[in-house]
Design a protein around this nucleic acid. Structure first.
Length: 277
DNA sequence: AAACAGGCCTAAA
DNA sequence: TTTAGGCCTGTT
């Protein structure tokens, strides 16, 4: 293992543009964790990294090319403008303020798909546990600044496994879905890169054909894995928020091309709001 | 102890 | 096309 030669530090953004706690903690990703030193460590696109805030600025340290992180954190987009592009009443305005600094990550498509299959009827700590076991059992090991990490195993790798191999993940009935999705992706019967380029209606249609993927998981995949920003995943939290805080006839698609960002603000606010409000 | 957790599948109206 | 019940596992 080489690695260590090209490690460098990159300034990512201001803390206002990128709030790392909110971004990593708002439920869109499962592989970033805060350590005692206040920095967040994780792996994306095969690169282990450390992200931290220093005063008003956010830095990242890794061996990845700079462009990778600018893309991953979606730093080319003006989030002020994106947030201003939708309107949905007072509750959404509050959620917007509360979630300021969240960015919709451009995650690896397969990782996102697999993670959100695991997420169904599950809670975040357990989702993270299952994902980490998946990576440590089947992902290539990586070393970074004296610690060990693992890549997210490819669909091709998982496709070779049998159901019993996934037993140690303790993912329950989701194991069958993971396997079947991995095989569909590996065999090419579903092409994730192609779906990223396709319009999201037909992309969703293709995703729904995969066993274990319903509307909610498909929408999460579209938003977090394929970056179709108009996707609006509706889970129990969102459903509740829509019911309690929006007009009965409110149509999320009226939020427009950045509806997914609105969804994330609402989700984050609804989940962490009551204890903070 | 029973219910629930960021759903989905299948069977049955 | 909508609805009920079952599904693994873990926590409260």
């Amino acid at each position: 293992m080489k690695m260590s030669e090209n490690i460098k530090t990159l300034k990512l953004a201001t803390a206002a543009e990128l709030d790392i706690r909110k971004t990593f903690d708002c439920g869109q990703c499962f592989r970033w964790n805060e350590s005692d030193d206040g920095a967040w460590r994780g792996v994306a696109f095969g690169y282990p990294a450390k992200v931290w805030r220093e005063g008003d600025e956010v830095f990242i340290r890794s061996a990845a090319p700079d462009d990778l992180w600018l893309d991953y954190f979606d730093l080319g987009r003006d989030y002020e403008a994106a947030s201003a592009s939708f309107r949905g009443g007072d509750f959404l305005d509050e959620a917007k303020r509360f979630g300021a600094g969240i960015r919709i990550l451009r995650q690896e498509p397969w990782e996102a798909l697999c993670s959100f299959i695991i997420s169904q009827c599950n809670n975040i700590p357990r989702i993270k546990g299952i994902v980490e076991r998946l990576c440590s059992y089947f992902g290539e090991p990586l070393s970074f600044e004296g610690e060990q990490y693992h890549v997210f195993p490819s669909a091709a790798r998982i496709a070779q496994l049998e159901l019993k191999d996934l037993q140690p993940l303790r993912s329950g009935y989701r194991a069958e879905y993971i396997l079947s999705a991995a095989r569909d992706v590996a065999s090419g019967s579903i092409d994730l890169d192609q779906l990223a380029a396709a319009d999201w209606i037909s992309a969703e249609k293709a995703l729904l054909a995969v066993k274990g993927i319903g509307k909610k998981v498909a929408d999460c995949m579209l938003l977090f894995g394929l970056h179709h920003m108009e996707a609006f995943p509706i889970d129990v939290w969102i459903r509740r928020a829509l019911k309690e805080h929006f007009p009965p006839d409110f149509d999320p698609s009226s939020l427009g091309e950045n509806a997914g960002l609105a969804q994330q603000y609402i989700f984050y606010y609804a989940r962490s709001g009551p204890s903070v409000r």
